[in-house]
Amino acid sequence: MSIKDLSPDDAVLWQWEFASLNYTILYTWIVMALMVLVSWLATRRLTSRPQMSRWQNFLEIVIGTINNQIRDVSQQKPERYLPFIGTLFLFIVTSNLLAVVPGFHAPTASLSTTAALAILVLVAVPVYGIAHQGFIGYLRLYVHPTPLMLPFNVIGELSRTLALAVRLFGNMMSGAKIGAILLAIAPLFFPIVMHALGLLTGLIQAYIFAILALVYIGSATQAHDTRSRLRAEHNTARAEAD
């Protein structure tokens, strides 16, 4: 892979027909293997006592923080959203942080990866919405407040998916490329600063991606909750009036 290659997709290791094994898929597997390995090692000997291993403590803090964020943002029980949102955040943040390792190509710097994650969010929103309030109830959101809004709602759904994909790809790809360019121009000091900045950017981008996904999913489920709550309050007021 050279600096001219904009995406790690272009670095193909193996090709058969339309199927190809490129850096994106390879490093995704590495990230996956690393995450699963750490999870397995840390959760092998879990204890419910206050004395626990550092890894368990670290993972409990991470999972607890994600859980709290989901609860705060969605105002709902976090258990349903934790696997999807948590995996999104952990995969993106692991990929982004590993970008500082020399020779590692972050899969999130590939538009194919970010597009895949955005498509997953695109699909997850109606899946959670339908699971939460039914098919009709979910579709009604698109004609809310009037049927005239239907095309705008559909366009909004697609555009935010595109924005998700391009935002993450742009940030990660630019960070990687800038680092490589600076390494060629000023190889001694400046790339370290840019890598440190890249770590911060990667963390923030992972947070933004996960939070936005959560907000989209939450908006598809919370409308139903709000209507239910309003209906319940209305019924209570009528009962009291009677």
Partner: peptide
Amino acid sequence: TVIAQIVNFLILLALLKYFLYGRILAA
């Protein structure tokens, strides 16, 4: 690659759900 990444993500989600979230939350 997009399809492969979607599959990879779903596999990762299943693995983490089994190895990480379930166990940690249970603990």
